[in-house]
Amino acid sequence: MENNIRLLLNNISVVYSDVIQVLKGVSLTVKKGQIVSLLGSNGAGKTTTLKAVSGLLKPENGKVTEGSIEYDGSPVQNSSPEEITRKGIIQVLEGRQEFKYLTVEENLRVGTATRWGKPYKKDLEMVYHYFPALLARKGNLAGYCSGGELQMLVMGRGLMAQPKLLLLDEPSLGLAPLLVKEIFQIIRRVNNELGTTLMLVEQNANMALQIAHYGYVMENGKIVMESDAEDLRENPDVKEFYLGTAATGTLKSYKDVKSYKRRKRWL
């Protein structure tokens, strides 16, 4: 039982700049080989959770003040990103942070930083296999790629590191629905074929719950719901707040003040 757990967050609290508490006792489990989705509205603390895992809180003056993060059984909280990436955890940042003045292929090569000096040709082929659109653009500056290409680029760049745990922060943000579908299919294939464990942060719960095995819902720095992805898809609250369809199938009236308020807060 213990050793099929890749990541364990045990009641963690995160504080920025010593005073701003953002996470208040978050616990979650990611099993090996699974896709676990972390849902929640803007500002809920999803990105902060990922950064706590990847060590990227440190440069932002954030800290895990309570609880523990265990990766493959050993504690990693508050380690540096250099150490954590070398253990096999890679975070793909929100908002497609490409290297503008590097070509597409050079961007991918930065993904080999955790294993400098080792061969990487096979990994490039693997990335081009999953993202054929990148192959056609490999000599172009990333700064001139489209949003969809960039999302593929940053995900492919993460895969170049041969991660055991890949953290994806809002891959669907700002992309056209067809493109989102394509990208989610690729995420599922990567999980199936490479066996990469994935943590998927999304506001697009509809798409995320279609490919995830398990899901957590976060609100205000706390986990408020967790369940198998199927159950979450059927859950009336999730349906109402995330999937945009009320259980009855009819739109609720704005006169239903409580629901309106909650809806606003969620979205």
């Binding site: 990103p81 990436t85 890679i90 975070q91 940042l93 930065v110 930083a113 760049r157 590191a161």
Partner: peptide, 9 residues
């Protein structure tokens, strides 16, 4: 892009 470089180790 320093944050991105950091995220890749």
């Amino acid at each position: 892009n320093q944050p991105a470089a950091l995220s890749l180790g």
